[in-house]
Design a protein around this nucleic acid. Sequence first.
DNA 1: CCAAAAGTGTTAATGCTACACCCATGG
DNA 2: CCATGGGTGTAGCATTAACACTTTTGG
Lengths: 253, 253
Amino acid sequence: MTIIAYDGFMPETRTAPARFPVTVDVVALTVRDGELNVLLITRLIDPFRGKLALPGGFVLAGEELLEAAGRELAEETGVEHLPGHLEQLGSYGPKGRDPRGDVLTVAHLLLAPNFPVLSAGSDAEHAAWYPVSQVQNGALQLAFDHERILGDAVERAKSKLEYSPLGAAFCGEEFTVAQLRTVYEAVWGTRLDPRNFHRKATGTPGFLEDTGRTTTGDAGRPAALFRLAGAARPAAGQPTRAVLNPPLMRPRD
Amino acid sequence: MTIIAYDGFMPETRTAPARFPVTVDVVALTVRDGELNVLLITRLIDPFRGKLALPGGFVLAGEELLEAAGRELAEETGVEHLPGHLEQLGSYGPKGRDPRGDVLTVAHLLLAPNFPVLSAGSDAEHAAWYPVSQVQNGALQLAFDHERILGDAVERAKSKLEYSPLGAAFCGEEFTVAQLRTVYEAVWGTRLDPRNFHRKATGTPGFLEDTGRTTTGDAGRPAALFRLAGAARPAAGQPTRAVLNPPLMRPRD
DNA sequence: CCAAAAGTGTTAATGCTACACCCATGG
DNA sequence: CCATGGGTGTAGCATTAACACTTTTGG
C-alpha cells in the first residue's frame, strides 16, 4: 500500500508513515467452578471461519483504546455495563498476524465475575466461556496469535493477584473470604491453606471491608461477607494502586 | 479521513475500519551519577518545535514494533548495537495526543548502561540524557503526552527491579555489587543498607555469577566483579523470567 | 449429635533489619 | 597508620507455614 496524498505527517520522515488497521482484543477471564475460564467467540467469517478467537474488533476513528475494547466486548456478549476490571495488556504485530495484511492489535485484560453471556441463537458470533486449561493443553485451538495473547494475559493475571487487590475483581460486589480464595487457587493453580489465607486477606489494611452481613443456607458455619475497601477499588480503567505489601505470595512452582 | 477503496477488512464491520498512523516511542533510562536519567531529543519541527520529547517515530510497513523501536533509537542516538534491555511498555491514544490528528503510539522501555549518545553538531535532532527528577518537578516539560508515558515507564522500572533481575541491565557486562546497589537506590529513590543488599544479591540463586576478577585502583578494598547469571539473562526483547523470589523488597514510601 | 465449613491460637522456621566487626587496598 | 569501601556474623523482629483447636450452622 502506498500513500499518495500529503497527510500532514510527512515532513518528519523520509518514507511515508504507514497507516495500519488497529484492532482491540479482549481477554476476559473469570472463575467458574474453581477453574479459570476465558471468553471466546466462534468466528463466522474468514479467515479462521469456525475457529475460536478472542472477542475484538477494529478501533473506530475518534475512539480511545479502552473505549473500543469495552464497546467490542459489550457488542459481542450482550452486556451493557461491563463488570470487573479492564486494563490494557499489550500490543502485538503488525506483521504476520493476519493473512489479509498487517494489523496491529492492542490486547486488553478483563478480570470479571462469572457473568452470563448472551449467546442464544442470534446470527451474531457465538460467545461462551471455555476453561483456559483446554487451550493450554491443546484441546482447543485459537485463531490468529490469540493463544500467545491468552498466555500473556494469564501470566499478567497471576502476577496481579500477588501485589494488587484485583483478585476481588473476579468476585461480585460482596463475597466471602473462601470465594476469594478459590479465585486465587484457580488463577495460580495451587491450593492455599484456608486459615492462613483468611488471616492474610482480612489482616491486610485497606484490602477488605466487612459488610457486617453473612451468608446463609450453605453447609457449615455462615461466612462473613466482605467488599473491596474503598482505597483498593480501582477507578474505571485507571492505574491500579498496589496495596498489598508485603505481597500475597504464591507458592513456588 | 475517509477510506473509499475496499481494503479486504470491510466484511467484518459495518463501518470502515479506520487506519491510524502508528509511532513507537522509547523511554531509555539509565543511571548517571547515582541519578535516574532519561534520553530526550530536542524537536526540530512542529508541532512542539524546540521542546523536549522522547525519541521515536513512525512504524514502517513490514516492521515489528520492537524492531521499529530499536531502529528509531539507533537512528536518533547513533549507537548501532543497542545496549541493555528493551521491552514494550504500553500503547497510548489514538485520540487527542497530536494536534495533527489521531496517532497511536506504542511506548517502549529501555533499561541501559550509561552509554554515550551521538550528539555532536549534526542537523539531526539533538539527543541527550536528562535527570528524570527535572521532568517530575516541572523544570523540564515534554511534548505530546510524553510526561505521562515517562511516568508510567519509571513506575514500571521500579517494580521490575523488585522481582526481576533487570537491575543488572543498567550496568555493563561486569559490575560490582555496589554499582548494582546504586542502580536500585537511584531508581527507587531510597538508600539501601550496603551489607544487607550484598547478602541478598549474592545470596539469590540464579542471579549473579562471580567472574573471579576484582576491581582495582579505587579507594578501599577491591570489589568482586559479577555478571548476570545465564539463567537470568533475558533473550533479546523476550519475556523476562522472574527469578527473584522472594522479591527484593523496596522500602515502603 | 455429626458433618462441614468458618475462623482463632500457637509454634517453629524463615527472612529481614540493624549494626558490630573484620578485610584489603590506596595514600 | 589511617581512611575508605568491601564483605561477614549475629541478635531481634516480623512474617510465614503448618496444624491443633474452637465456633456456628444444617441435617
